[in-house]
Design a protein around this nucleic acid. Structure first.
Lengths: 128, 128
DNA sequence: CTTGACCTTCCAGTTACAGGAAGGTTCATA
DNA sequence: TATGAACCTTCCTGTAACTGGAAGGTCAAG
């Protein structure tokens, strides 16, 4: 498929997809006309990149995560080590998001009148 | 306190803290020597910024979130609307992180031998 | 009163894109 | 067959959110 369809299916702008190719994250085929040609596995990777980037992982971390699945020569112990480190980080992110969620919900419910209450919720916010 | 201590307490590099001042996110006092002087509420905000940035919110979104607590003149309905939108986004992030977590854990447990198995886990990864 | 660890501003570089120009390709329609 | 819209290409510039480093002022300890 062309880059437009890959964009539509992955949710990433075509610009970003080309950029990811520039920095070596994906390697689509090329048709005779010079157009990029993406397979469904490419789309899977792009969707994955879209998600993990939006969750605060750097492009380099995404590269590591992708490598967990792609680098056939990597020994299992390495994979486990990296994956385990990422798991710890993911758990932290989930915890922090949950706290942030709780705090925001508190605010939403606290504001029942027409005026914002003067509650010092920032403390709660930053206690993580 | 000086910027070094604020950095230590918030987890943000001093460079970043100065940058956040440049773009108007925080307004520390200045001592007679020209040094920035941070209070504990500043540290709270900085910790909050550190967290929400690492969770994939843009600086502008962080600004909105901070404004929910700072803008005393804002009507409650507005606060609710913004906060509710953020809640939806946070829920999505939590869902996606949970899926990513599950997939990574799967990989860790699947790799019991010395060689990485050739499992096409990418599909699972990108189904969110 | 100097030394080292702070702090300041300023300027340049990096990452991860986004916008837009200039031009080639494809495909439906006149 | 032609022409126009909607694709695609590369290239170059701009932006966001930092990061590093230079050049120099401040402060507390010995």
């Amino acid at each position: 498929m062309n880059i437009g369809e890959a964009s539509g299916r992955s949710g990433l702008p075509a610009k970003t997809i080309r950029y990811y190719e520039d920095i070596g994250l994906i390697r689509p085929d090329r048709g005779g006309n010079g157009y990029r040609d993406y397979g469904s596995d490419d789309v899977h990777k792009l969707r994955f990149l879209n998600r993990s980037r939006s969750l605060g992982f750097s492009v380099d971390e995404c590269r590591q995560l992708l490598a967990l699945y792609e680098d056939k020569s990597r020994a299992s112990a390495d994979v486990k080590e990296i994956a385990t480190a990422k798991l710890t980080e993911i758990d932290r992110k989930i915890r922090e998001l949950t706290e942030l969620r709780r705090t925001l919900e508190h605010l939403v419910h606290a504001c029942h009148g027409n005026e914002r209450p003067d509650c010092p919720i920032l403390e709660e916010l930053s206690e993580g």
